[in-house]
Design a protein around this nucleic acid. Sequence first.
DNA 1: TTACATGTATACTTTGCCTTCTACAAGTGG
DNA 2: CCACTTGTAGAAGGCAAAGTATACATGTAA
Lengths: 202, 202
Amino acid sequence: MSTAAGQSQHEAGPARPVRRLRRAERREQILDAATRAFARAGYAATGLDDIAAEAELTRAMLYRHFDSKADLYRAVLDRACTRLAEATGADNFDDDAIPALLRAAAADPDGFRLLFRYAAREPDFRELIDSITAASREVGRRNLARVIPEGPWLDWAANLIPAFTLEAVIAWLDAGQPDSDQAADRITAAVHGVMAAAHPTP
Amino acid sequence: MSTAAGQSQHEAGPARPVRRLRRAERREQILDAATRAFARAGYAATGLDDIAAEAELTRAMLYRHFDSKADLYRAVLDRACTRLAEATGADNFDDDAIPALLRAAAADPDGFRLLFRYAAREPDFRELIDSITAASREVGRRNLARVIPEGPWLDWAANLIPAFTLEAVIAWLDAGQPDSDQAADRITAAVHGVMAAAHPTP
DNA sequence: TTACATGTATACTTTGCCTTCTACAAGTGG
DNA sequence: CCACTTGTAGAAGGCAAAGTATACATGTAA
């Protein structure tokens, strides 16, 4: 029976026809799946089996596209960083900064969450997004330095405001991305509120 | 030479006299060290060797006090939760909530950071602090429900405000814990700023 | 001084998961 | 038809870190 005419896999069900993709497309599809999988639990807590399952492939295929788990993760993070940079543009924190962030987050929610909820806290990979976070902190600090004197409170505000902005964007994703124009207004207002509170005294 | 009269350890240096503690105290000291070690990189990225080194003990001793790495981690988190609950009191988010949070964070900075920077994102242990975060979200939601209509924006604000408060406290720890009274004022003001921004229209 | 709790030191086993390898099946294009 | 690519299936291999075991040293208290 089983050795008769070679049936595809395990003779289960109506024999799904096996999706074939060309190399470059499969690579992208794997990156998509890996982004989703990693975004659920971070690097360490995500096994290659989870990723393979998410991509509906075997583990072996992952190794035909990436040298190692770390390599795959780096590729995922790199792509997410690139997309983020593209979607936000080289905009140096002018008034369009927050709408740009929202666009970026909406364009790649899993990548966004992965970058800022997990990768930012993973010692081995933090460096990959440090350029971004360091830049935003620096810009924030320069803006704040006009109204807050040098000292621990400036440090506090300069760290807090970018972190808060990201939290607000992620909370917006979690809330189902309602009305992005309104979201931009609310987040902008909230950031101003935090900045006002960061002042020493009125 | 080396086999002469049994010298304590490896004949290195002036033979540190070996700190002996009674079981309960050693346990606490291990929990302290483990809290510091885990607070640097989270559960997965911290080895038992890191903890042993931090505690200035051998790995073997860790197993005389805890059954496993997971058991040790749970003990660390439990203690941090307990301390947090004690330091904040059962105060249901009245005006003293933020000063209480600052007191708690100052009393156990490593535990505080560990709970909210790492444990909150670790699938296997998230449950241990969920009672806390869920409660704070719920209280926040009830307060907000008076000024924000039911819907995604209420969800957004109810998630964001507790997260923001914690970020603000951690940023205060990172900034060197300057003047906790002023910190309470600024964070309270900032929270109000965020709440104001969360309203639909002025 | 004897018994025990606390500690060091180090070698060993186990386990989980990444990683590699082999064998085979089936679409695709020249 | 044939070479090539893309795919499955599953068995080993290998390694790092968790966990176990044994032997010995030394304060402390009955």
